[in-house]
């Protein structure tokens, strides 16, 4: 596979990246790990005039705790995220999720910022982002702004990332300390993408009542979604297998479930229930 001709420029700061984007006037495309962009280039599905390499901008590589949130710089590779002490300690579901992305090569090169900015409907990461109330941190021509996942990703491969701006980091809520979490995935045998991926963060209080429940599902439709119907059925209930089973029946409620060659909408609706039930059991029992 051979891409069409493009120029290449490396930038060393966010400001420089924004300047380049402005100068190139829509012809420039940011590249970091390249694991979403390069396949598109090879198929000539995208033909940018220039690639702006942001992979060496140091300020995009930080991971830090800020109050009740963890901020992960956009340039962290999946491997780095999965093995980061702060992430493992405070938001382990993120580590568990990114550990299941692609294969070793993809995890070594692909970045968390690139993954979110690409907005692949079949990606693993959005499930974890949703249960951790991720905020997308953006720097653009007019300064910094923050968006939540729902308003950032509006369709398959379509985001609200403003023109001439850089996704700089993603910040995640630290769930209460008594909660536990899991990411349960059914990998497509060819692509390795989730046919379904369910992320759960949940916990019970001292009376065995479910007091925290975040469930998000990816891979089954155009965008990943929070299964709020499931969460509502769980919250305030005393933990039991029946409660989990009944709540899981609503797993497909909040999503738009799609057909593809490998699995129909009907089958995916079934998977939503089964995988949500199994993920909840893994977390709560």
């Amino acid at each position: 596979m051979i891409p069409s001709k493009f120029d290449y420029v490396r930038v060393n700061s966010i400001d420089e990246a924004i300047q380049q984007l402005q100068q190139l006037n829509g012809e420039g495309k940011l590249i970091a790990g390249g694991h979403s962009l390069v396949p598109l280039l090879k198929f000539r599905l995208t033909e940018p005039g220039a690639l702006i390499d942001i992979s060496r901008i140091a300020e995009l590589k930080e991971v830090r705790k800020e109050g009740n949130r963890i901020v992960v710089g956009a340039l962290n590779t999946h491997f780095q995220v999965a093995n980061n002490q702060i992430v493992k300690e405070h938001i382990p579901v993120l580590a568990e999720t990114v550990r299941q992305i692609g294969d070793i090569q993809v995890r070594n090169r692909g970045t968390i910022g690139g993954n979110i900015a690409h907005a692949d409907p079949a990606a693993d990461l959005p499930a974890a982002a949703h249960v951790l109330d991720a905020k997308i941190m953006i720097q653009g021509e007019d300064g910094a702004e923050t968006m939540d996942m729902e308003s950032f990703v509006i369709g398959p491969l379509i985001t609200m990332l403003p023109e001439n701006s850089v996704l700089t980091a993603i910040s995640f809520t630290i769930p209460p300390s008594h909660t536990k979490s899991a990411y349960l995935k059914f990998s497509h045998p060819a692509s390795g993408y989730p046919v379904i991926g369910v992320a759960v963060v949940a916990g019970v209080d001292e009376n065995n009542m479910i007091d925290y429940a975040k469930v998000a599902i990816t891979g089954v439709g155009d965008v990943a979604y929070r299964a709020t119907a499931v969460e509502e059925k769980l919250l305030g209930q005393e933990l039991s297998e029946t409660v989990i089973k009944e709540a899981s029946q609503y797993a497909a409620e909040d999503g738009e479930i799609a057909n593809d060659l490998f699995s129909s909408e009907e089958y995916r609706r079934n998977l939503c229930k089964v995988y949500t039930e199994r993920a909840l059991k893994a977390v709560l029992f």
């Binding site: 497509h188 045998p189 060819a190 692509s191 993408y193 060659l261 490998f262």
Partner: peptide, 29 residues
């Protein structure tokens, strides 16, 4: 038996024309 299969659409397009859709078995299977 379990994974592979080339599928054509009614208009003769190969719908399984990349390893994203054509499931070559991997050692871990």
């Amino acid at each position: 038996a379990l994974w592979e299969g080339i599928v054509y659409s009614k208009d003769g397009q190969n719908l399984t024309g990349t390893f994203m859709d054509y499931a070559m078995p991997k050692a871990r299977f």
